[in-house]
């Protein structure tokens, strides 16, 4: 198996991507390429066409609140011919939650991007069908943002049982 570390340091990849990749992180032989958001599609296109990263594994989002830049958008790619993986990461500010959609490069990015839109409120420019995928259509807000409470209901113990019971919605029949 080709070493992922060797791949990340190879002259061909450095020449190919050049200054589109702002930083290369290697942690336990896992390669992460950080790039600015306006060059994301360029990087993905180059990895797909010239480095044989033919398989889109997943995309996800991390909320680093209260850190800034707040969001990290991750695209995990795999090369079935070379058996190596690479992660492309874009950092986003909390004030500007939009990023170009990778659907034009990898069709498989369609649903993961919808999921990120649904749960984190990230707007993907140029996405063919950007609507909720997990939560019901009428849902308000984006539940995985860190400002939301982790629990929806107070857990009832003996000391707070009456209050917890009062807060519970009871049906009217």
């Amino acid at each position: 198996m080709e070493s992922q570390k060797k791949f990340a340091m190879s002259p061909s990849i450095l020449a190919e991507l050049g200054d589109a990749v702002s930083e290369t992180q290697i942690f336990r032989d896992e390669v992460t390429l950080l790039c600015p958001k306006h060059r994301l599609l360029e990087v993905l296109q180059a990895l797909r066409d010239t480095q044989q990263f033919d398989m889109f594994t997943f995309a996800t989002c991390v909320d680093y609140y209260p850190g800034e830049p707040r969001f990290g958008i991750l695209y995990q790619l795999y090369s079935t011919t070379r058996n190596i993986r690479v992660r492309v990461k874009v950092m986003l500010s909390g004030n500007d939650r939009s990023v170009p959609s990778a659907c034009s490069v990898y069709h498989a990015a369609n649903w993961p991007e919808r999921e990120m839109y649904d749960l984190f409120g990230i707007h993907f420019e140029g996405h063919p069908d950007l609507r909720r995928i997990m939560m019901p259509p009428g849902y308000e807000g984006h539940p995985l943002l860190k400002e939301n409470p982790a629990k929806v209901e107070e857990v009832a113990f003996s000391f707070n049982r009456a209050r917890a019971w009062e807060d519970k919605p009871h049906p009217q029949e």
Binding site: P143, K151, E153, K168, P169, E173
Partner: peptide, 15 residues
């Protein structure tokens, strides 16, 4: 499942 995705007891919607 004390979270946003799950109904906290089905008695919220049916008797």
């Amino acid at each position: 499942f004390n979270n946003y995705a799950v109904v906290q007891g089905v008695d919220e919607i049916v008797p």
